[in-house]
């Protein structure tokens, strides 16, 4: 049976959205996958996911984005969902300093449960709330540099930089995967094409990646 056009892809990349409750993870997901923003959205319970197939570096990539509940108590189940994730979007709310302060906790969470080579991007969301901004871009930028994360500020409401954020992380994942394919016999695109989740090798330790600035 022929695959439907939306099922044809070269790579399947699993990416997780994490960050404190109420920072806008679900709306970033709906903006990216359906170009929708819901003012009446409910809290996410447990885990949800959505996909979108798009072109990354000339390849067709199916991005499978997992969205998790922000409450710490849900960590018990959400940590299992880091398995197989190639990327993580760590979101905070630029109007709520505590959500930025908690970024370090989330990084620890990732380093404990995710693959050591997972690509991490820090996202400051809700830039449309200009008069309420409480986290300076420069502070987040320098934090990201110190921790070796990519960084971008977004507004899911105004659709600012959302596309760019996902494109950037997917490109970075692609670059790592294609490098892997060249240097190793094992994880060929054929394996990925079958929809299996792969984990990039953990032998290289906690290598820091160059920061990708949004400005």
């Amino acid at each position: 049976m022929a695959r439907r056009p939306d099922e044809e892809y070269d790579y399947l990349f699993k990416v997780v959205l994490i960050g404190d409750s109420g920072v806008g993870k679900s709306n970033l997901l709906s903006r990216f996958t359906r170009n929708e923003f819901c003012l009446e959205s409910k809290s996410t319970i447990g885990v949800e996911f959505a996909t979108r197939t798009l072109q990354v570096e000339g390849r067709t990539v199916k991005a499978q984005i997992w969205d998790t509940a922000g409450q710490e108590r849900y960590r018990a189940i959400t940590s299992a969902y880091y398995r197989g994730a190639l990327g993580a979007l760590l979101v905070y709310d630029v109007t709520k300093p505590t959500t930025f302060e908690n970024v370090s906790r989330w990084l620890k969470e990732l380093r404990d449960h995710a693959d050591a080579n997972i690509v991490i991007m820090l996202i400051g969301n809700k830039t449309d709330l200009k008069h309420l901004r409480a986290v300076a871009t420069e502070d987040a930028q320098s934090y990201a540099e110190r921790e070796g994360l990519s960084f971008i500020e977004t507004s899911a409401l105004e659709a600012t930089n959302v596309e760019k954020a996902f494109q950037t992380i997917l490109s970075e994942i692609y670059r790592i995967i294609s490098k892997k394919s060249l240097s190793s016999e094992e994880p060929t695109p054929a394996n990925i094409k079958e929809g299996k989740t792969i984990v990039v090798g953990g032998s290289e330790g906690n290598a820091k990646k160059p920061c990708c600035s949004s400005s």
Partner: peptide
Amino acid sequence: ADVGLGVQPKYVLHI
């Protein structure tokens, strides 16, 4: 289970 939605999903690891 194949799409990783089982209660105890099995992931194929390629290291």
